[in-house]
């Protein structure tokens, strides 16, 4: 373990503080082992979840701007590089696109600074946890830290929409044929199930208006994953997790995990408080199978 942890400002987002606590806890625990510490920024509000697509909707940018201001202050006070790490795809998308919108049109930033009576200088680099693992830690280094044998596990990576699109603004990976989660799973040593539904939409907020449609779309994704032999599916978005998980209860028995939960298992951490039990489809069997292999390896 490195002697001094890198201090990384972190924006949690509402869902990660309540419905997806396991995602946040596992991510923070893993970060500590990998060598960086995620610190919540002091004061934060909901990011607004969906980035306003119409150009004239400046009001939708108010919430993310507030967060960027807070992050910038957090970093200035500590004299560190202005950056912000996120876990939720929605938050990542909204914050990063807001920052991009300001870079593209400084007039917008001026208007919002005046409206909010705050000052965002446009310096914050918004990063996703996965992006940080890939670009700063490196998947090669990550694979060296793996302590659990996951080679028996067939895992389907599910990206969803907002982690990747629009590519021009997020630049995380290719929106049609992404590899970042594939590489991540590879580094953990599990078998990656490359399935066609990995970038299809799960139905997202349509759950509010038309839950049947969400069920249909999620079923399609889960069917494809199962058809390609996946035992479990990992995602980076709490809404995808919730939609897929609720559909899976009706469909089958494939647990839907957050990628950090799997990472925590791989790194051999205590996973008791990672809230596996709040998932609709109980991932107990998956968790148990991994621990067994770990014990075997230790015995040898």
């Amino acid at each position: 373990m490195p002697e001094k942890m890198t201090h990384i400002p972190y924006y949690p987002g509402c869902t990660l503080k309540s419905k997806a606590l396991g995602y946040e806890r596992s991510a923070k625990d893993c970060a500590r082992v990998i060598g960086f510490e995620m610190h919540d920024i002091e004061k934060w509000n909901c990011c607004g979840a969906s980035f306003p697509l119409t150009k004239d909707n400046l009001m939708g940018l108010a919430a993310p701007t507030n967060i960027l201001v807070e992050a910038e202050q957090h970093c200035t006070e500590r004299k560190i590089d202005a950056q912000l790490i996120t876990l939720c795809s929605f938050c990542y998308n909204t914050l990063k696109r807001t920052d991009f919108a300001f870079k593209e049109d400084p007039g917008k930033l001026k208007t919002l600074n005046e409206f909010l009576d705050r000052k965002y200088h446009g310096n914050v680099k918004v990063t996703h946890y996965l992006e940080y693992l890939r670009d700063v830690i490196g998947f090669d280094n990550l694979s060296k830290m793996v302590k659990t044998d996951l080679s028996h596990l067939r895992v389907a990576p599910y990206y969803g929409c907002l982690l990747l699109k629009p590519e021009k603004e997020l630049g995380l990976d290719d929106p049609e044929e992404p590899v970042i989660l594939h590489d991540f799973l590879d580094a953990l040593g599990c078998q990656v199930v490359d399935f066609p539904g990995q970038v299809d939409c799960c139905g997202a907020y349509l759950i509010m208006r038309n839950p049947d449609k969400v069920l249909e779309l999620s079923h399609k994704i889960l069917d494809e994953a199962a058809e390609y032999g996946a035992q479990t599916l990992v995602t980076a978005c709490p809404l995808c997790q919730s939609n897929l998980d609720q559909s899976e209860v009706v469909r089958g028995e494939m647990p839907i995990l957050y990628f950090t939960q799997l990472l925590a298992i791989a790194l051999g951490l205590e996973t008791e408080h990672h809230q596996f039990d709040t998932h609709c489809v109980d991932p107990k069997s998956i968790v148990a199978s991994c621990q067994k292999f770990k014990e075997c390896a230790n015995a040898k």
Binding site: C14, T15, S50, Y205, R209
Partner: peptide, 12 residues
């Protein structure tokens, strides 16, 4: 439901 679903739904 997750907050992000409700917030996005309300926005849209």
């Amino acid at each position: 439901s997750t907050q992000q679903a409700v917030v996005s739904g309300f926005r849209k």
